[in-house]
Design a protein around this nucleic acid. Structure first.
Lengths: 205, 205
DNA sequence: TTCCTGACTTTTTTAACAAAACTATCAAAA
DNA sequence: TTTTGATAGTTTTGTTAAAAAAGTCAGGAA
């Protein structure tokens, strides 16, 4: 029985990998179940044996990405030498994550509103986890006596994350496309580091 | 000739006022030229005598709003006692402006992309003006010796304005609707003030 | 019993087109 | 010069049919 489940799990993994590649290169709407099945040399019907529907499949891929991302963060945010290093690592990791999976998120660019509820649950979970990790980093520093006490770390981190999220590019053509263009990600990253620098100073001042 | 132009200008003003009301209450797409004409008891054709088309009319209203907004800012940002007061006034004024004209901007919510170029020009001008005013505030404080020198005020203000703009609401349902809902504006405002507080500290630390 | 498929049904997307609503124009009147 | 009714032109909306993709199922293979 364990073996059977192992086999199942392996196949599910294969499906998730193939789906990830398709979604990553062509986006959600330009990927068909037939194509994914084709990549794996299996019938479309089999995909439905493993996953209830297309959106669930996408969500499963996204959940995996989110888990890996958070694992990376956790590993490092358990041991850091100072607050700035911790926050910088978060910003850098996030940047890398977006760059590597840019096209995967075309789902967000196109569907704008009315995405499946499960998507927002994942987004919420990730944000909650990030918030917790960063908030803990602050608490740790306070306990160590490295920085002066902070009244409400969660609130502070919440605001910081919003602020970082808000960083856009193009001072002149300020057209706020909901999702930043890929060619702007580097500039945005730089600006985020600048904001972070000032914010940390303000926090530890 | 002066009289004739005065008359024209007065009528143009009347049209702008009526249009403003319509746009404010029903938004751009739900306002028809017939309705505006009806409000003024004039024919639709006459509107086209004063304004080339509907979008130009909207833009004219927007330009007026922008001018008034900037005038308010300029008045106060020429005389302030400290940096925090200046920045806080900007945030408060902006908040008030958005609250008062919330529905007017439904144009932005709906059209998302591909707005008339002229709209973005105004947005750019306003942002540029705000940036200049706040940047000058910093320079003034530096000259007064009230705060320590700042290497690049424009860059700092640019990042701050992005950050403020990015403040959203709803930690759980983080659905990033491009434009904040009206019922969230107050909470957003509060969060902005918190961000501002930390940012200023970081700047003057 | 678990895994898998081809054939089938249902749903969604796309394209074409007509009707309706609205924008924009213009000759002529005030 | 200012104003309008009539009308031309364009965009939006609604309808329908065909095509494409999602999703189902009875039954076969392991």
């Amino acid at each position: 029985m364990a073996a059977a489940n192992d086999q199942q799990d392996i196949k599910r993994e294969k499906i998730l990998e193939a789906s990830h590649q398709r979604f990553l290169h062509y986006g959600y709407s330009k990927t068909t179940m037939n194509e994914i099945a084709g990549d794996l040399s299996m019938s479309k019907a089999l995909l439905y044996y493993y996953f209830p529907d297309k959106s669930q499949l996408y969500i499963a891929v996204m959940r995996k990405l989110a888990t890996d991302y958070l694992k990376t963060l956790e590993n490092r945010l358990n041991s850091f030498t100072n607050l700035k290093e911790a926050f910088t690592f978060q910003v850098n990791t996030h940047h890398e994550f977006i760059v590597n999976n840019y096209n995967f998120f075309d789902f967000f660019r196109l569907n704008e509103q009315n995405l499946p509820e499960a998507i927002w649950e994942i987004v919420g979970e990730v944000r909650g986890a990030e918030l917790g990790l960063l908030s803990n980093a602050i608490k740790t520093e306070v306990e160590k006596g490295a920085i002066k006490p902070v009244e409400n770390p969660d609130e502070i981190v919440d605001v910081l994350m919003d602020a970082l999220h808000g960083i856009r590019v193009g001072s002149i053509s300020q057209k706020k496309t909901n999702f930043p263009r890929k060619e702007h990600l580097e500039e945005i990253h730089t600006k985020k580091l600048l904001l972070l620098d000032i914010f940390i100073k303000g926090l530890t001042a």
